[in-house]
Design a protein around this nucleic acid. Sequence first.
DNA 1: AGAAATAAGTCAATCGATTGATTGATTTTT
DNA 2: AAAAATCAATCAATCGATTGACTTATTTCT
Lengths: 249, 249
Amino acid sequence: MSEPKPHQGGYQRGEEARRRLLEAGIEVFGLHGYEAASTRSITEKAGVNLAAIPYYFGSKEGLYRAVAEHITTHLDGPKLTATLEQVEKKLKTSQVSAEQALELLHQLFDGFVTTLLATEGSDLWARFVFRELMEPSSVFEILNQHVVQKTIRPCAALIGQILDKPSDDPECLIRAFTLFGQVLIFRTVREVTLRSLGWQEFSGDRLDLIRSVIRQQVDRSLHGSTLEEKTAQSHPASNDSSEDTPDRI
Amino acid sequence: MSEPKPHQGGYQRGEEARRRLLEAGIEVFGLHGYEAASTRSITEKAGVNLAAIPYYFGSKEGLYRAVAEHITTHLDGPKLTATLEQVEKKLKTSQVSAEQALELLHQLFDGFVTTLLATEGSDLWARFVFRELMEPSSVFEILNQHVVQKTIRPCAALIGQILDKPSDDPECLIRAFTLFGQVLIFRTVREVTLRSLGWQEFSGDRLDLIRSVIRQQVDRSLHGSTLEEKTAQSHPASNDSSEDTPDRI
DNA sequence: AGAAATAAGTCAATCGATTGATTGATTTTT
DNA sequence: AAAAATCAATCAATCGATTGACTTATTTCT
């Protein structure tokens, strides 16, 4: 509860120890969870003394909170950040056509796959984040807000443009979650998917296959009628999927 | 490692204590994980003495393994079991048409939603299972085999029938995973989805909405071309989605 | 400038609390 | 009476945190 945090007039050496504790915290907390992660294993990996944790962060939980805040930095890869800015800009300024929205959505999901499955070290902070989102504790709010803001909200907004519904419509949010869940499962139960597929890792060609399937399903999911107006498009001739579904391979 | 397990000539009272430890183990292990779940909290919830764990299960890990094996009982709800038997029978005996396969797939996913989101107590064993599948430990194989056998394999087989591919084709498995991921996300990051939607729980009408979206997406995902033969169906006239997509609401 | 004084950071040793497991006496069931 | 089961008491090990001596870095004073 108390936060001593003697961090005001810090020296350079202290900043280094602080930084290394955060990095080690991401790894050890991410791998073993809060309880199972001993402060000794963290300080050993960080190469600092055991007393450095209460000194810099007040307590083990203080470090945990600091790691959670620090981790929000890793949440969006370089590729994702650019796309997210594009989406934000487009949605703010002008009306976005369904085609534009769909293309941005594809870019977003390509970024999700890259960030979650093909980025070095993503398994460490991803584990940390998902564990917290699965069973909320003290830092749930921090991570939840960042994740939703960087993933679900933009998706729901684009989906809303495509389906011509408000972005906070439950259907838009649900569709955003289901589509995101398609990517997420390969991260959360990574070992299950790898083993079933007989793979050792998600390498280049295999990632492309996953990307293609997801791209196609994002595409098809948002074509045609929404839930309410079910038989609105009685003549699907203009909805030939062969042109706006640029499947790879 | 050693398993004394004095369980051969047990009395009735012993069986009762054994059973209560397993139930309490599901709950406490599921809520807090292996490390954070103390043997004392488990025995308190079970209403037995602390020494009962090493007595009946050899050790804490022995109990953990026993819980994992016991938990496979809960993995399929009554509704799911019936559908799974149908699927197995259909796939064994005769050739299944794409329409039949799709209908069975819909039944399966309705069952998934019901079992994972609308079944009392599912959060407890589900947490246990997902934690183990997320970061494999000693009981990963047991749970993985059961889960894959009861969910992914049947889905992949049906998808294979629809897409006219072998059920162990990577694309079939990937599609099975992505579709299953659409349901799973509402269980794994349950609090995130509920909060974003402004909901308190997945009640009847809201579950129906989720079910409808998933049903529609399962439907659309498997219509039309697969990845390789992309423009095979040049005339989608016979593929009007208004009849084989019985959307609710 | 250089020296003294103060602050910041590091470290080994140790604290009380809690962990999983064991013991041996006792009670219950067959 | 014999086996099975329960129980309080206690074990060594490990947990997170604290202590006070120690070193390093920065500031202040002359």
